[in-house]
Design a protein around this nucleic acid. Structure first.
Lengths: 217, 217
DNA sequence: ATATATTTTTAGACATACCTAAAATTATTA
DNA sequence: TAATAATTTTAGGTATGTCTAAAAATATAT
């Protein structure tokens, strides 16, 4: 499996959550910052390898085999992120690019031992679940902060975007995993919110609220 | 810098020890299990990037820049080997292939932090020196066991080959880094030796003796 | 329902890194 | 030193993964 093939699989795996059915060619092209024609070429190749179900003009779905493989890449990515934060003093906004490289290293023993070394973690530094060895991803019930009404509250359990800028902004606001968050008010004009973050009152934009996941009590 | 370019640089770096002067095209081709014509192609590219000095038919030498870059790859390779053995229960015969992949991961912070995490080791699990951040390789005075005469003795400080088969054989003989080794006798017919390994008498072939480094007392 | 817009695929190129076969150069030896 | 052998380079070709531009299919809107 080439690096490029792995990246396509992974992208389809992630997009499959947004599109419940087939993932459109263009969605893949956009996410990978490439052209639709390149995607088409690759989809044909992945289809020949039985990693995706592909019918012209109908988008793609991962096969069981493809999903398993994709999950194993995501598993590696997230395990490495844990390692970087827990052992190498990386912050949650620094891990992505490095994990993006480390996820392609091939060695079953490496993954097994790393998992063991880290104490078999279940989530990465952004709160995303780490697929298990069989490719199963534990589904958490979490909702976007933007979907909450004033008065509702919960624990911050994840972020939708992993962009450095965003994560650094959260650090500045002192918003992090595990924090207690309550929606105090919501502005009808622009959907911005005033929230209580571990007891501290602060105001966030709709865009920010739309990238924070909480688990309701 | 592509993966391929990095592998060529590294190979030239290693071969430069054997050939004191320019490294011949064919030597590179053999080591990399590729064809001389492919090597020529790459040497031209590396020369354009000022990473090697290359004159047609005259072999190559690394430039300062090329040597620095190559050393940084070797540094990463060896640091990862230490990590695999010290923290992930790898044995010295298992680390090479995985380190071969990990060495290409690009992140200065990753290397710095890994070095720190491991306690700034100076040698890898095979006794090979780890280049420092500036690309300097600490030169050890070590000699091949095959070059020793009966009566001479020293400490095992390295191996010339990193082949799994060979390392596993050493494990079976219980020969490892730090062991006290003395040459008891040498057979003139085939240069095989009887040695004392940490007090235990055993017999080894000339080929084996030619792949073990010791440091004389 | 037909025209228009959007999405997707095809066709044909390009760069990388490899290959084989033949030519050029350098080294060896008689 | 001339002939032969070995090494190295060149020339031309292949597979991968990308691209642009044009054609085909699907979706949308009047």
């Amino acid at each position: 499996m080439t690096l490029s093939e792995e990246n396509y699989l992974k992208t389809i795996f992630h997009l499959a959550r947004d599109f419940d059915k087939e993932v459109p060619t263009n969605a893949i092209a956009e996410k990978m910052e490439t052209k639709a024609s390149s995607v088409t070429d690759m989809l044909k190749k992945l289809a020949e390898k039985k990693l995706v179900h592909y019918k012209k003009y109908q988008g793609v779905k991962l096969t069981d085999q493809g999903r398993f493989y994709a999950a194993s890449i995501v598993r590696k990515h997230r395990l490495w992120e844990v390692f970087l934060v827990e052992n190498l003093n990386f912050t949650w906004d620094e891990v992505h690019d490095v994990a993006e490289q480390l996820e392609h290293v091939k060695s079953e023993k490496l993954v097994d031992e790393l998992d063991e070394f880290l104490g078999k973690p279940t989530v990465d530094p952004h709160g995303d679940p780490i697929p298990d060895k069989s490719g199963n991803v534990q589904r958490m019930e979490k909702i976007l902060l933007s979907a909450c009404k004033p008065g509702e509250s919960g624990t911050c359990v994840g972020v939708k975007s992993n962009a450095s800028r965003f994560l650094q902004y959260l650090d500045k606001l002192e918003i992090g995993l595990g924090n207690e968050i309550e929606i105090l008010s919501k502005e009808p004009f622009d959907q911005s919110m005033v929230i209580s973050n571990n007891g501290k009152k602060l105001s966030i934009s709709a865009l920010t609220a739309n990238n924070i996941y909480i688990q309701k009590k």
